[in-house]
Simulated assay, not measured.
Amino acid sequence: MMGEFDAIRPYADAEVPAVMARLLKDQAFLDTLTRFRFPRLAGSFAWLLKPLIAYRLGLEFRGINSVAGLQEKIEPYIDRTVERATDGVTYSGTENLSRGNAYLFLANHRDIVMDPAFVNYAVYHAGLPTPRIAIGDNLLQKPFVSDLMRLNKSFIVHRSLSGRREKLAAFQLLSAYINHSILKDGESIWIAQAEGRAKDGDDRTDSAILKMFHMSRKDEPFAEVINSLQLIPVSISYEYDPCDQAKARELFIRESSGSYQKAQGEDDQSIALGITGYKGRVHIHFGQPIRQCPEDSKQLASEMDRQILTGYRLFPVHYLAYAMHSERDPQLAVPDASELFPADELAKASREWQRRLDACPAEQRPQLIRQYANPVRNQYRIKAGLPL
C-alpha cells in the first residue's frame, strides 16, 4: 500500500473484512444502531438487541470483501433514506462527465453528510464510479465513525491541528493525496468549496483550498496543475434545509454576542437531522470542467463561484424569502415567485415556508430569511454582471 497516505486514506479492498469484523464488535456503533432502529426499546433491552443486530449485520454483509461490494450493498438503504426524506432528487450536467476520467468535484456545502451522499447518488445513478470524499477529522470523534467513513471511500482532512507547522504539513499531505488519487489511482475526489457549512446560504469558494491543490506540485505553474486535475464545480440545491432553524439560532447568537460555542454532541445532532429531516426537492448540477485555468487562485475562485451560483436551482421558497428580505438589492430585477411557478406549487411552498417562519423565534427570523434569500441575490447579481 501507499504508506505515506495511511493516516488519511480510505480503506482498501483487502482491509474491508477486518474493519467490518471490528465494527461488529464496537459497542458504541451497536449502541447507535440500536437507538436508531429501536428508539423505544434501546434503553431497557439494549443488552438483548445489540447481539441480535450484530448477528443480523454479520449475515447481511457476509462475504463482502471489497469497497465496491459494500457500496452496492448499502446503495438500496441510501436510496430509501433519500427517497423518504425528499420529494425527489434530480441532477443535470452529467453529460460533462465521461467514464474512465477522474475528476476533482468542488461543491457548495450545506449539509455534513448529505452533500457528498447526493453527489454520490447522482454519479452512481449516472453509471459512473463514486468519488472519494474529503471529511474533516472534527466529525470523527468516535473510532467507529472513522471506520464507517473510510470504508465508504472517505479520506480525512486534519482540521483540528493548532500549530502552524502541523497545519502546513497536513495541507501538504492532503494536496499530495488528492493529486495522487486523481492522476495515479484514477479515482475522483469530492471536497467542499470552503471549510464548514455556509450557514447563511451564501456559497463562496475559499481560494486557500484552491491553493492547497497546488501545494504538493509547487514547481509547476498553478494553472497547469489545476488543468491536470479536471476540476468540476458542483451546485447542490436543497429546497428546504432540515437544519435551517439551528443555523438561524447559531447566526443570531454569533451576531448578537460575537461568538458561538457548540454544545456537546451538536455535530452529531446536525448529522442525524440532516440525514432524516425533510428536504423537499434536491437538485445536483455538475458544471463545466475547468480547462483554461487562470494563473491566480482568486480569479479561479470567482470562476468557481460563477458556475456554482448560476448552477444552483432556485425553488419557490427562495423567491418567497427574498421578497421578505430586508437587504433586497434595488439594482436586481428579481421577478415575483408568482411569475415563475404554477399556482399549486407556489401555494404548497407558501404553506411550508410559513410553517418554518412560525417555528422560528421572531428575533431569529431575519437569519432564517437570509439563508433562503442569499442564493437568489447571488444568482441575480452574477446574471446582471455585478460583483458578489
Rank of each mutant, 00 (worst) to 15 (best):
K153P: 00
I232Q: 03
A134C: 14
T86M: 05
S181V: 05
L314W: 07
F213K: 02
F315P: 04
S44K: 13
R150C: 05
E15W: 10
P10E: 04
A169Q: 14
S162M: 09
G3A: 12
Q371M: 15
L368M: 11
K298Y: 13
C360Q: 08
A102E: 09
E187P: 00
E72F: 00
D147E: 08
E255S: 15
A46L: 06
R56K: 11
F341D: 10
K279D: 05
Q379L: 03
L183P: 01
I178L: 10
L173D: 05
R356S: 08
T32R: 14
L229S: 10
A46E: 11
K218E: 13
N374W: 01
A117F: 04
T310K: 01
E303H: 12
R159V: 10
L174N: 10
A343I: 09
A7W: 02
Y372A: 00
V113H: 00
L168R: 13
L357N: 05
I284Y: 06
I369D: 01
G311E: 03
A54F: 07
I74F: 14
Q141E: 12
E4I: 09
T90D: 12
R306I: 00
I74G: 00
A42D: 11
I74K: 00
K298W: 09
Y278M: 10
D268R: 07
L368K: 03
L24K: 05
H180N: 12
S216R: 04
S270H: 09
K262R: 11
V376H: 07
G127I: 07
S154N: 13
L314N: 09
K211T: 11
P330H: 07
Q371W: 00
L210P: 07
A46T: 02
L309V: 10
S257G: 02
F252I: 00
P289Q: 10
G287E: 06
R365Y: 05
D26N: 15
F61N: 04
F155Q: 03
R370Q: 15
R356Q: 14
P10C: 05
F155T: 01
N96K: 15
K50I: 01
Q264D: 14
L251M: 14
H325G: 01
T32N: 11
L161E: 12
R381K: 15
G100S: 09
G274C: 06
L388S: 12
A169N: 12
S338T: 10
V334W: 03
L59C: 10
S256L: 03
A54H: 04
I275S: 02
M215A: 12
A301W: 03
I209T: 09
R370V: 01
F252H: 13
D111G: 05
Y380Q: 03
E352L: 13
I8G: 00
